[in-house]
Write a protein that binds this DNA or RNA. Structure first.
Lengths: 111, 111
DNA sequence: ACAATAGTTAAGCAAATGCTTCAGTGTTGA
DNA sequence: TCAACACTGAAGCATTTGCTTAACTATTGT
């Protein structure tokens, strides 16, 4: 369910915004509340909540509310899924280049 | 210059669109002309060119025009930069979890 | 009890995005 | 030479995005 294209879509969409990437970056150093996430960002708390909801919908961040504070953490599995998509494409390209190199080396040998 | 935040921004932005990811996916299997990229997509050639320009501006794709055909290829270095950003954050989180695990194991020993 | 805290929700708005169509440009094969 | 081909660029338009403010709910410390 992590590799389903709709989820992947949400993830890349989520990562496309600088503010959201900054939030992910902050969370990579440990859990944080909404206010803590908001603190370094030059926007209203409300805007941060909206970004956070998107991050959560994408699966990149998981949150739980205890009392009045919502604590957020990264979901490494989701990050890995995005990472994996890119990696597959890059490897596919690089393998192709390798085969091409082999072929050229071989045809050169045949001279 | 690949890790400069503005370029990273363009890359993630570029990857956020499904059509553009489909184009990257196609290019991961080998070079293609604009028309070839357009073929599986349900949109005008003009729209494809606009997507392609964005991909090129982001550094993810390199193109060269010979005669009347523009040939496109993936730039694996750029893909690697995006991959790297995600990887760093995930590792940072996972290392933190490991340290936490060690700490918990140790305090348990002390009983 | 009540004020401060922590977050949520809705409405509204300007700017950005993802198209479309249409009118080009330059290239190539017959 | 000239028609088909492979794009390219500008204008326009509907939708989405990323905010804002303002009004609200629920929790906590005193």
């Amino acid at each position: 369910m992590l590799h389903d294209p709709a989820q992947l879509d949400l993830m890349f969409q989520a990562l496309a915004d600088p503010a959201r990437r900054q939030m992910v970056d902050r969370l990579s150093r440990g859990p944080a509340s909404v206010s803590q996430l908001a603190e370094p960002l030059a926007m209203s708390l409300s805007a941060v909540v909206q970004h956070l909801n998107l991050l959560e919908a994408s699966g990149l961040v998981r949150t739980q509310k205890i009392g009045r504070v919502r604590t957020c953490q990264i979901e490494p599995k989701a990050l890995r899924a995005a990472e994996h998509w890119i990696n597959e494409r890059r490897l596919s390209w690089e393998r192709r280049l390798d085969r091409l190199g082999d072929f050229l080396a071989q045809t050169k040998d045949e001279n």
